[in-house]
Every structure is written in C-alpha cells, then in structure tokens.
C-alpha cells in the first residue's frame, strides 16, 4: 500500500526525483541490452555455404542431348570452358519453375540451352532463359549416350531442392527452409539428395520416384530432415540419379 515516502509517478507530470536514478539505469540497461543481444544473435548465424548464382561467369550456352528422368537433363556434347562435354546439367526455369513443357518435345534430341549457372562445390544447375532462347533444337547427329546402373543403395542424408541448394538461396537447406524447398519441389525443380557418404565419388544425387516419376508425395514429409532411404542408383555422365523407394524412408537423428 502506498505511503508518503515512496515516490509517485504520474505520466503527465514531471517524474519524481527519487525515481529518476532508477529509470535512467533502466534506460541505459535497456539500450545496451538490446545492442548486446543484437550482437550476440547477429554473430550466432551459421555459415550458409558457398552456393551462388554465377552471374560473374556470364551467360552460358552449350549443346547436348535432352533426357527426361522425368526432371530434364542435358548430356553435354559440345561444351565450353565452364561446362565441358561429358558433363550432365540439371535444368530449371526462373524462380520455382521448371522447363518440362519446353524439354519434353526435345527428349532424346540434340538441343542448345542457354542461361545462368548456379554452383555449389561439385553441384551445379542451369537456369534457362525464357522461351526458345533458353532451349531449342540443334542441328546434328544424336550421339550414343549411355546410362550405367549402379545397383541398389541405402543412403543417409537430406532431400533438398536442388536449385536453392546450388545457390539460389543462402541458406538453401535445413528445416527452417523446408516450406520453401517443398514449394520448389512442387514446382518440379529437380530434387537433390545430399548424402553423408559419397556414392561412387559423388555426394549429390538427383532424386526421382521409384519408376522414374516425379518426387513421390510421401517424400515431401521427409524433405530437409536427416533421413535414410533406399533406391536404385544410375550414372548419367557425371550425374548420379537415385530412384528412391518411398517405403524405405526413415527419419534418423
């Protein structure tokens, strides 16, 4: 209960002298506390990795054979200094979109593609320009392209959307980014499995459904988590493709 000795603060009157010291201390504590938390939290940010859009490389234009896994790939036959012949490029549209409507008519044919590279270590992807500027039929004989089965594997790692992972976003993986990854995958951006153990020299694998269809619905619940799964792996040039078996999905921790 109130008594005479305690200072009494009324908002629209001057602050009582006896309270000024305490309130000043609170103000100083508040301001320095907030700056301190800003610093502590600001320097606590994890490294988002080195993936990036390689605008610095300029526009890349190469020729190769279009394959559908069903995610469109280009098996490069005529490359340049950044993208050599023999390389396999995953193809994506702008934003969270795919290029399937443009790639399907060209399946098995020679095509020229043009766009911006995304790169993160050994992983890369090409974001195509719009319309026929991005992909169009090329003249020439279609060379023999082979696909080598590597058998069934059980792997541990994370399903990501390949585009954000390759550098469209930093960070581009992890649980905080899960909804974003799902949205990319719903847009049929190529999914990539990041394996904790390299498979035949590669830690990144393009993921498809068990019979060469798009990522199964069940797999969406496992995106961005540390999981194990099984599936058949095949080699297409320097890219591995994992036909995952959704019944084997398991969360690890």
């Amino acid at each position: 209960m109130s008594d005479n000795d305690k200072p009494f603060f009324v908002g629209y009157l001057p602050t009582p002298k006896a309270l000024r010291g305490l309130l000043l201390a609170v103000c100083v504590l508040f301001i320095s506390g907030l700056s301190g938390f800003g610093l502590a939290l600001g320097v606590a940010q994890d490294d988002p990795g080195d993936g990036a859009f390689r605008f610095d490389y300029g526009r890349q234009t190469v020729t190769g054979v279009v394959e559908l896994t069903p995610y469109p790939l280009l098996r490069v036959t005529e490359g340049n200094e950044r993208i050599p012949a023999g390389h396999t490029l995953m193809l994506a549209g702008g934003g969270k979109t795919n290029v399937e409507s443009r790639a399907i008519p060209l399946e098995g044919q020679l095509a020229q593609v043009s766009g911006t590279m995304l790169q993160r270590g050994a992983l890369d992807m090409l974001q195509l320009r719009g319309g026929a500027n991005g992909i169009s039929a090329a003249e020439g004989e279609v060379p023999q392209i082979e696909t080598v089965p590597l058998g069934r594997w059980k792997l541990a790692g994370e399903i990501c959307d390949g585009k954000c992972l390759a550098g469209a976003m930093r960070p581009g993986r992890g649980l905080a980014h899960k909804a974003c990854a799902n949205l990319c995958l719903l847009g049929k951006v190529p999914p990539v499995f990041v394996s904790t153990q390299p498979v035949d020299g590669s830690e990144f694998l393009l993921v498809t459904g068990p019979n060469g269809e798009h990522l199964p619905e069940k797999a969406y619940h496992y995106v961005a988590q540390f999981i194990s799964l099984e599936g058949d792996v095949e080699r297409r040039g320097d890219l591995l493709v994992l036909r995952m078996d959704p019944d084997t999905l398991e969360v690890l921790d």
Binding site: L34, S35, G38, L39, G42, V43, Q45, D47, P48, R170
Partner: peptide, 26 residues
Amino acid sequence: LLGVALFLYVFLYAAPDILSHERPIN
C-alpha cells in the same frame, strides 16, 4: 526506438563483418 534501432543495426551491419562467411546470408 533507440534500443530497437541499435539491435537491428548491430545485427545487420556490425555482426556480418565479424562472421566472415565466404558468401553472406541472403
């Protein structure tokens, strides 16, 4: 407002220099 502005300023502009990531967070 001063507290809030300082929090944001330090988080956004002072901290990244200390972080030295190869490529910054978007």
